[in-house]
Design a protein around this nucleic acid. Structure first.
Lengths: 154, 154
DNA sequence: GACAAGTAATTGCATATGCAACTATACTAG
DNA sequence: CTAGTATAGTTGCATATGCAATTACTTGTC
């Protein structure tokens, strides 16, 4: 009413939903990030990388795969991996079949730090995810987000 | 096996769901951001602020309300509003009842730019939201995210 | 095999952001 | 009314990130 509802669909259902997605994500990421930082001294971005590496079939990924998985630019990923390597949590390895590519592998130290962080993370999720959504709701949410999470543009 | 699955629940259903939330959000935000930037020269963060202001009862919010709504630190919000004000899209106004507080109001120019951006935004959402989720799925998602989007910590 | 086009990662630069310290104002208790 | 505490916003500083240009390598074509 206050802003010409006809011309300005700021209250549109889809707009509200998208805003809710942004806000919910930001809130949870910020809270979890603070908790990881406080208890494990591990930035959320580092945690994401280590998690991706562990989930990878052979515990290693190429730079570009990491960039895609965590939705960073390749430049940003280079610097992020620089820091992780500096902290001895991952290791750059040559790719035997493509000399342009770099394999990033998690180290023993990285695995240890990830275990610590996972404990904190799981505790957080028990409280803030499982505490608010039941198992079937979580399955629904997973299904809905999967439909939205389309890699490329269209 | 490569990482002691028993001790390392990296494939835990909740962990996967949370990762999916992060990834979906990042992907959509990045795509929409690029589109807004390209077509309207309006950063996503600016769009978020303008949208919040329009949705506010009287078209203005205090700094701290904005910070909370868009999940930024207060320091970050100060700078963000600095830039928006510099671009004449918002205006700082004194609060008559509390001299510590600042009212941020959207300007006519801000409203115009927001209208442009909303058109782009709605088009994006038609493709990427409504194109992938039906109306009842969107209602479900809204409901689920609402349960997760709890303002404070506990 | 040589050249063109494509791909992987890195770098320089600009910018956006958070944290902690600080200032100014408001509230509360005595 | 004064002192102490809480709150709103801003600032200095450090850091993380994206974009565009660059380098190095690969692939496809003739």
């Amino acid at each position: 009413m206050s802003a010409l509802p006809g011309t300005c669909p700021s209250g549109d259902e889809k707009v509200v939903l998208f805003g809710l997605l942004l806000e919910t994500n930001a809130r949870m990421a910020r809270d979890l990030s603070a908790e990881l930082e406080a208890t494990c001294a591990l930035p959320l971005a580092w945690f994401e990388v280590l998690l991706q590496l562990r989930q990878a079939p052979d515990g290693r990924l190429k730079m570009s795969q990491i960039a895609d998985a965590i939705v960073h630019s390749t430049g940003g990923t280079t610097r992020l991996i620089d820091r992780l390597e500096e902290a001895s949590l991952v290791e750059r390895q040559l790719c035997p079949t493509d000399r342009r590519a770099i394999h990033v592998a998690i180290t023993a130290e990285g695995n240890r730090r990830l275990d610590d962080a996972l404990a904190v993370h799981l505790n957080y999720l028990d409280q803030h995810l499982a505490g608010r959504l039941g198992a079937s709701e979580r399955r629904s949410l997973t299904s809905l987000l999967t439909k939205l999470n389309v890699p490329a543009d269209r």
